[in-house]
Simulated assay, not measured.
Amino acid sequence: MPYVNVKITREGATPAQKAEIIAGVTDLLVKVLDKNPATTFVVIDEVDMEDWGVGGLPVEEYRRRTADAAGQR
């Protein structure tokens, strides 16, 4: 009985996109681990941007710096 928790930033994922994530994760567990989709649970949590960090920075600052660095190339 697999349980998968997917965390994404709260940036307006649509119900259709979330349904696609749920279906895709379930299909992956069926294909790779031969799990029963009827007993596979997928939960999507949306996290506020200010509560998400990458590389020691709030995600918005990380993205800004990454975009600036890409623009300098």
Rank of each mutant, 00 (worst) to 15 (best):
M1Y: 07
D48Y: 06
A69F: 10
T40M: 04
L57M: 13
I44A: 02
M49R: 13
Y3N: 09
A16G: 03
V42R: 03
R10L: 07
G24Y: 05
Q17H: 05
P15H: 03
P37M: 12
D51M: 08
V6T: 02
V47E: 12
R10D: 14
T40A: 01
T9A: 09
P15M: 01
N5P: 01
T14G: 02
D51C: 09
F41R: 12
W52V: 03
W52P: 00
E61L: 13
E60A: 15
A23C: 01
T40E: 02
Q72V: 05
T66Y: 05
A70Y: 10
D68G: 06
E46V: 02
P58Q: 12
V6I: 15
L28E: 07
I21C: 06
K7P: 00
G12P: 01
T66H: 11
T66L: 14
I21F: 09
A19G: 01
N36H: 08
R10H: 09
L29I: 02
L29E: 03
E50K: 14
G12L: 02
P2S: 06
V30T: 11
T26C: 10
D34C: 07
M1C: 05
D48A: 15
K18F: 00
D48P: 04
T14M: 00
V4P: 01
R63E: 10
M1I: 00
W52C: 03
E11G: 10
N5W: 05
M49Y: 05
D68K: 14
D68M: 14
P15V: 06
M1N: 03
F41K: 13
Y3V: 14
V59G: 04
T66G: 11
V30Y: 01
K31D: 14
E20G: 06
D45A: 10
D45L: 06
A13I: 10
G12N: 04
V59T: 10
G71F: 00
E46K: 04
Y62W: 12
L29M: 15
Q17P: 02
R73W: 03
V54K: 09
A23R: 15
G24T: 04
L57E: 13
P37L: 11
N5F: 11
M49E: 14
D51Q: 15
E11D: 13
K31C: 07
F41A: 12
E61Y: 08
G71K: 15
P37S: 08
L28S: 11
N5R: 13
W52G: 01
I22T: 10
G24N: 07
G53V: 03
Y3E: 04
D27Q: 13
I21P: 01
D27T: 08
P15G: 05
A38P: 01
K35A: 15
F41E: 08
L28R: 09
E50V: 11
L28T: 13
P2K: 07
V47W: 08
V32C: 11
I21K: 02
G55D: 04
